[in-house]
Design a protein around this nucleic acid. Structure first.
Lengths: 146, 146
DNA sequence: TCAAAGTGCTTGCAATTGCAAACTCGGCGG
DNA sequence: CCGCCGAGTTTGCAATTGCAAGCACTTTGA
């Protein structure tokens, strides 16, 4: 999925609507907002609140967060700092388990920094795959949310 | 961190401010919003936009997302998906290391799910410990969110 | 004690948001 | 041709948001 520059929330909404092949009035009805207002939002004449974005997202059947990112309300998370933050925020594991995970993660990273970065214990095909997966995640805003 | 019920964004902001031991005017200055307005927000007389929440979060040195969650703008993501997604996306560890982390993480969670709800929050050594800490998690409102 | 400083709140106002009524345009069928 | 319908836009308005000036009360320091 292509992500246009943050700030063009109206363009993005129109783009998504057109991809979904529905009219402005249909989306407005599905989103529960007035169609004139939606028209204005799409053309950048009005700046919708987060709640309206939420409604529009529902009408488009997409995640509201995508629209928040587009509107600049939240940031697209950096994948690499996510592991530590995610572990720390995870409440389905215990504090000690979190620490264990963090320790292991950190030692892995230290290992990789000290050792050959090229030394991949796994199959030679792995690194490219890893990269590809990263690209995938980059393209999926949802997976970035923390 | 205690999370009061979603909807009481004003209470939450006041709570965070008081925990930080700063006056309403100080926070307002740090956040770049007017202090009367902040006062009204705290008392629930006004409903701040996402941008104002962003500014307030900066003033409080907390994540804006926390405030969005409190304000009901976004949902609290399942922590488990964050950790898994983060690990998968992490390029600073090898594929094998990623799998190890995921396996450990999953076994921890399985442990915690299957564990006794009985309170035994003590020794940090073995799976029984995990059970004990599950009780801890149960007592944490965070685990109920999302 | 008193004055100054700090704290949080009240009030009025300009700008913005979201809506409803109405409008214009294009396509289609009688 | 005309009328109808669906599409998107224009316009005016009420409600809301965020601010600045000012107020009332409390705390602090001489």
């Amino acid at each position: 999925m292509e992500l246009p520059k943050v700030g063009s929330i109206g363009e993005y909404i129109r783009q998504q609507r057109q991809q979904a092949k529905i009219s402005l009035r249909q989306l407005a009805a599905q989103a529960g907002v007035s169609n004139p207002y939606l028209s204005q939002v799409e053309r950048g004449l009005r700046k919708p609140s987060a709640e309206i974005l939420n409604q529009i997202a529902k009408g488009l059947h997409i995640s509201a967060k995508v629209l928040y990112v587009q509107a600049g309300l939240i940031e697209d998370r950096e994948p690499d700092s996510d592991v530590l933050a995610a572990i720390r925020a995870d409440v389905t594991v215990t504090e000690r388990q979190r620490q264990v995970l963090i320790d292991i993660y950190e030692s892995f990273r230290k290992e990789n920094r000290a050792g050959n970065p090229e030394a991949q214990p796994s199959r030679p095909a792995e690194p490219p795959t890893g990269d590809a997966v990263l690209t995938e995640n980059t393209a999926t805003p949802d997976s970035k949310e923390g």
